[in-house]
C-alpha cells in the first residue's frame, strides 16, 4: 500500500531524521563488536576508571562505575527504540481495529467502545503508565504494556474518525453495491486509507514513548541493571551530573535527538502521505 510513496520523493525533513534513527539502529547493533568496552554492555565495572571526562579513549567519558558512556549510550538506543516501536505497534494493534469497528458500526458498539476509551483518557497523561507499570512490576516489557495501554485510545479515536469519513466515500459505497461485506470493506478500503494519519501519529508517539519510558526508568519503574537504557543511565548518574556533566548529558542528548527525529519523521510523513489526496 506504500508503493505509491516514492522513496526519492521523500522530503528532506524525513531523510535526515530517518537517517539518524537508521544509523542509531545500525550502530547499536554493531557496537558490541566494535567497541573495546563492549563488556560494559553486559554490566562490567571498572572502578579504577570511574568518572573520566570525555577523551579519545572514552568519547563520552566514563560513569561512576568506570563504564564507557559512549558504548552504553549507543547500545541503549536498541532498548529505547525497541520500547518506542513496541509501544506504538501495540497501541496501534489494540486501537486501530477498535476504532475502525466503532466508526464503521456506529450506534451502541461505537457508544461502548468510546465510553471505554474516554475512561482511559480521563487519567492525566503520565498517571496511567505509572499505575500500570507499578502494578505489573518494574520491567521494560511492563513499561511497554503500560504506555501502550494508556495510549491506545488515541489510535481508537483517529481510526474511528477516519472510518466515519471513509465509510461514506464513493468507493466504499461502490464496494457495498457489489455486495462487499463489512470485513471486506474494512480490510480493503477503510484500513488502508486510514493508515496514513495513524502512521503519522505512531511515528510521533514512538519518540514520546521513549521519553516516557526514560521517565519511568528514571523513577525506578522501568529498566534495571544490567539493562542499558537512556532513562536508567540518567538515573544512575544523577548524583554526579554537577561534577561529571558528561554522565547525563549524552544519554539526555540522545533522547532529545531521537524524540525530535521521530517528530520530524511524523511531520514529513504527514506531508508525503497527503500528496496522494485530492486536496493537493
Amino acid at each position: 500500500m506504500f508503493s505509491s510513496i516514492n522513496i526519492f520523493g521523500l522530503k528532506r525533513s524525513i531523510f535526515l531524521p530517518g537517517l539518524f534513527i537508521f544509523a542509531l539502529i545500525v550502530a547499536s547493533l554493531l557496537i558490541p563488536g566494535l567497541s573495546p568496552y563492549s563488556e560494559d554492555i553486559r554490566g562490567a565495572v571498572h572502578f579504577e576508571e570511574s568518572n573520566l571526562s570525555p577523551s579519545f579513549s572514552h568519547y563520552f567519558g566514563t560513569d561512576a562505575a568506570g563504564r564507557d558512556i559512549f558504548t552504553l549510550t549507543v547500545r541503549a538506543a536498541l532498548t529505547s527504540l525497541g520500547i518506542g516501536f513496541g509501544v506504538v505497534i501495540l497501541a496501534m494493534f489494540i486501537g486501530t481495529p477498535l476504532g475502525l469497528i466503532a466508526g464503521m458500526k456506529g450506534k451502541w458498539i461505537d457508544e461502548i467502545i468510546m465510553r471505554i476509551v474516554d475512561g482511559f483518557l480521563a487519567f492525566p497523561p503520565l498517571v496511567l503508565p505509572l499505575i500500570i507499570t507499578s502494578a505489573l512490576g518494574p520491567s521494560i516489557n511492563n513499561i511497554v504494556i503500560g504506555i501502550a495501554i494508556s495510549w491506545f485510545p488515541w489510535y481508537v479515536r483517529i481510526a474511528r474518525s477516519q472510518a466515519i469519513v471513509l465509510k461514506n466515500q464513493d468507493y466504499v459505497l461502490a464496494s457495498r453495491s457489489f455486495g462487499g461485506s463489512s470485513t471486506h470493506i474494512i480490510l480493503k478500503h477503510i484500513l488502508p486509507n486510514s493508515l496514513p494519519p495513524i502512521i503519522v501519529q505512531a511515528s510521533i508517539d514512538a519518540g514520546y514513548a521513549i521519553l516516557v519510558a526514560a521517565g519511568l526508568s528514571f523513577i525506578g519503574l522501568g529498566a534495571h541493571p544490567p539493562q542499558v537504557e537512556w532513562g536508567l543511565m540518567i538515573t544512575q548518574a544523577r548524583a554526579h551530573f554537577l561534577d561529571q556533566w558528561w554522565t547525563v548529558t549524552f544519554p539526555g542528548l540522545f533522547i532529545f535527538m531521537t524524540v525530535i527525529s521521530f517528530n520530524l519523521i511524523g511531520d514529513g510523513l504527514r506531508e508525503t502521505l497527503n500528496l496522494n489526496n485530492r486536496e493537493e
Binding site: 474518525s161 471513509l166 519518540g207 525530535i260 504527514r270
Partner: peptide, 22 residues
C-alpha cells in the same frame, strides 16, 4: 481523504514536542 492536520497545527505540534522534550 480528510486532511486532519493543518499547517499551523503541525507547527504547534512540533513546537510542543520541542518544548516537552526540552
Amino acid at each position: 481523504m480528510l486532511k486532519i492536520y493543518s499547517i499551523s497545527c503541525q507547527r504547534i505540534a512540533f513546537i510542543k514536542c520541542l518544548f516537552r522534550t526540552l
